[in-house]
Amino acid sequence: MQAAAHLFFEQGYAATSIADISELSARTSGAIYFHYAGKEQLARAVVEAHFAAWPALIARHENVGAPALERLVRLSYAVARAFRDDVFVRAGARLWAERRSINVEMPPPFLDWIATVEHLLDEARAEGTLAAGAEPVRDATTLVSAFFGLHTLSDALDERRLIEDRLTAFWQLMLPALQGVPAPAALLDRVREDTASLPR
């Protein structure tokens, strides 16, 4: 599956064959077909691995002893690094984008992310740190849309090499609308100082 993820990310679904995966993985085609009925099922397995990466990552960041908005920002950087560095995450994202050419049902994206962001915004409201004009249900969808749009742009421009810089600019724009007492620079400084020890 590691070989398949690498090839699906680098070449796309249509340009990758079972023979290619066999060659890269040093496994016979027969061994691959023993585990997967075809290339479609292997692609789905990679997408499922992509989605399976998130619950544990979310849980680790939800358990960090920090205010909710800071946890949200910390989580966003961890997700950004996963999209930049993790082959299963990158391959899963590409395969999901190519889903109309793959004859297998794919898991739905984004809904869990929207729920997670809404939950953190609700926590921030309960803490008294959310801006009066912020609305968790409305703003969670907007934040997730903008966040993944940022990833699409960053992937197209430089294969996400500058994703953390772009994410910092994103939060410099968004945090003043979310924080009850706007202090985006202080929050971002705390997150950047702790980057080396953040859960991955």
Rank of each mutant, 00 (worst) to 15 (best):
D85H: 12
R161V: 05
F88G: 02
D86V: 12
R100P: 08
L69A: 01
A131I: 09
G92A: 04
M174W: 01
V64H: 00
E48I: 14
A78C: 08
L95V: 14
D85L: 10
A80Y: 12
A97Y: 05
V181T: 11
Y77H: 05
P176Q: 02
D122E: 13
Q41P: 03
I102H: 02
V79I: 15
A132H: 10
L167Y: 01
P55H: 08
A97T: 06
I102M: 07
A177V: 05
L153M: 06
E135D: 04
G65N: 13
G128V: 15
A115V: 14
A146P: 03
E118D: 12
P67S: 04
R100T: 11
V46D: 00
D165S: 07
W54L: 02
N63M: 15
F147R: 07
L173S: 06
I163P: 01
I163Y: 01
E98Q: 12
F147E: 05
I102N: 06
R161N: 03
R100F: 13
P136W: 04
D86T: 10
R125M: 09
G180K: 01
F88C: 05
T129E: 09
G92I: 04
A66S: 01
E118H: 14
G180E: 00
Q172R: 08
Q41A: 13
L167W: 05
A134P: 00
E98A: 05
G128R: 02
L95M: 10
R60E: 06
S145Q: 13
E127N: 13
F110T: 14
A53T: 09
D112I: 14
L72I: 13
A49T: 10
D86K: 07
F88N: 04
H151D: 01
A177G: 03
G92N: 02
Q179Y: 00
L72M: 12
P107K: 07
A56R: 05
G92V: 07
V137G: 00
E123L: 12
D165H: 05
H61F: 09
D112H: 10
R44N: 09
E123K: 12
P55M: 15
Q41W: 02
F170T: 06
L75S: 04
P107E: 03
L72A: 03
R60K: 08
P108N: 11
L162P: 00
S145C: 08
G128E: 03
D86N: 15
Q172E: 06
R138F: 09
D112S: 15
Y77A: 08
G149Y: 08
I58Y: 14
W96N: 07
A68T: 03
G149K: 07
A156C: 06
R100D: 09
D86S: 06
L130H: 14
H151P: 00
L42Q: 10
A177D: 02
L143E: 01
L143N: 00
D139E: 02
R44A: 09
E40N: 15
Q179T: 09
T152V: 04
A68W: 12
L162I: 03
L130W: 06
S145D: 14
L111Q: 13
W96T: 13
D85A: 14
M174P: 00
L120E: 11
Q172H: 04
A124N: 04
F110G: 14
A91C: 03
S76D: 07
A59H: 03
I163T: 04
L121V: 15
L121E: 08
